[in-house]
Simulated scan of single mutants.
Amino acid sequence: MPDSSAPDVAVTARAITMRGPWGPVYGPVDLDIAAGGVTVLVCPPGSGRTALLMTLAGRMRPASGSLSVFGRTRVHDIFAHAALAGIDELDTVAESVTVRDLITEQLRWDADWYKLIRRAGEDDVARVCGPVFGDLPLPPLSEYVEELTELDGLLLRIALANTGRPPLLVVGNLEQVTSDPERDLLVSRLVELGREQTVVTAGVNGVSDHPVVQIEVENTTRAELANQQKGGA
């Protein structure tokens, strides 16, 4: 009989690879990520890790191998059920805009085309940012993005990406927050989000003192890929 206590699987990847104009980017990579909670992919920073996170969120199609996210295998379907935040190539925010501007833009993007969305107010900040910030102070409407702390800036990017609360939330590397205490707060907030969603992120050294799953991932750096090619020569 199947084990009814076994966790549901959110992500299954088998031998997925990515190639760019200059050759391999990552892979082959195998992953099994359980549904719910936070999973940290432990691997060095770089284009390979970024591309892998984007693949898991349906923003890139693997060159080979198989990927299933909550049973969905088409990139378009994975995209529709995943949020992606904290990837500079995709959601970098202009420093000269305010929190009000960003939230207003997101609310307009989420709304039906025929609805008139006024400029964001305090209630909108609470609705958009509250689930992500939790007990932490919400960013002031008039604050410029460049004036936010690293933690608040990343939490804001997560909040903007996560307004639809999809099953999967993929967050760029934890090292974006360089302060150890603030990074600890970031992980705490991701753990809270993991109570309702499956959260996947990445880090160099992993995470301690938090209830997260850590998976070491190989074949994401140029050195690893070069050694792999030499071994197969």
Score class of each variant (00 low, 15 high):
1 M>Y: 08
3 D>A: 09
3 D>W: 00
5 S>F: 08
5 S>V: 04
6 A>Y: 00
7 P>F: 02
9 V>I: 12
9 V>E: 09
12 T>P: 00
12 T>N: 06
17 T>D: 11
19 R>T: 11
20 G>Y: 07
21 P>H: 13
23 G>M: 06
24 P>L: 12
25 V>E: 09
25 V>L: 14
26 Y>A: 10
27 G>R: 06
28 P>R: 01
32 D>E: 13
37 G>F: 03
40 V>H: 01
41 L>Q: 06
42 V>L: 10
42 V>D: 10
43 C>E: 12
44 P>M: 05
48 G>V: 02
49 R>K: 13
49 R>M: 06
50 T>S: 12
50 T>G: 09
51 A>G: 01
51 A>T: 08
51 A>H: 02
54 M>Q: 11
55 T>Q: 11
55 T>H: 06
55 T>C: 11
61 R>M: 08
64 S>P: 10
72 R>W: 00
72 R>T: 04
73 T>H: 07
76 H>Q: 14
77 D>C: 08
81 H>A: 14
82 A>E: 07
83 A>C: 12
85 A>G: 13
86 G>Y: 08
87 I>G: 05
87 I>V: 13
88 D>E: 12
89 E>F: 04
91 D>P: 08
93 V>A: 15
94 A>R: 15
94 A>E: 13
95 E>L: 15
97 V>M: 14
100 R>G: 13
101 D>I: 02
102 L>W: 07
103 I>K: 08
105 E>R: 14
106 Q>R: 15
108 R>T: 10
108 R>D: 07
108 R>G: 12
109 W>P: 01
110 D>N: 13
113 W>H: 08
114 Y>Q: 09
114 Y>V: 05
116 L>M: 08
117 I>T: 14
118 R>L: 15
119 R>Y: 06
120 A>I: 06
120 A>W: 03
120 A>L: 07
121 G>T: 12
122 E>R: 15
123 D>S: 12
123 D>Y: 02
124 D>I: 05
125 V>P: 13
126 A>G: 08
127 R>L: 11
129 C>M: 06
130 G>E: 06
131 P>S: 04
132 V>S: 09
133 F>Y: 08
137 P>E: 03
141 L>R: 15
141 L>F: 03
143 E>A: 15
147 E>T: 06
152 D>H: 07
155 L>F: 02
155 L>G: 11
156 L>V: 01
156 L>N: 02
157 R>T: 07
158 I>L: 11
159 A>Q: 04
162 N>A: 12
163 T>M: 13
165 R>K: 13
169 L>R: 02
169 L>W: 01
170 V>L: 00
171 V>E: 04
178 T>Y: 11
179 S>H: 01
183 R>I: 02
183 R>C: 07
183 R>V: 02
185 L>M: 11
186 L>D: 01
191 V>G: 00
191 V>P: 00
194 G>H: 01
195 R>C: 02
199 V>N: 08
200 V>Q: 00
200 V>C: 00
202 A>D: 04
202 A>S: 10
203 G>V: 03
204 V>G: 05
206 G>M: 06
208 S>E: 14
208 S>A: 15
208 S>Y: 08
210 H>F: 10
211 P>T: 05
213 V>E: 09
217 V>R: 07
220 T>Q: 03
222 R>G: 14
222 R>V: 09
222 R>T: 10
224 E>V: 06
224 E>H: 06
225 L>S: 02
227 N>E: 13
227 N>L: 13
227 N>Q: 13
228 Q>D: 14
228 Q>H: 15
231 G>S: 14
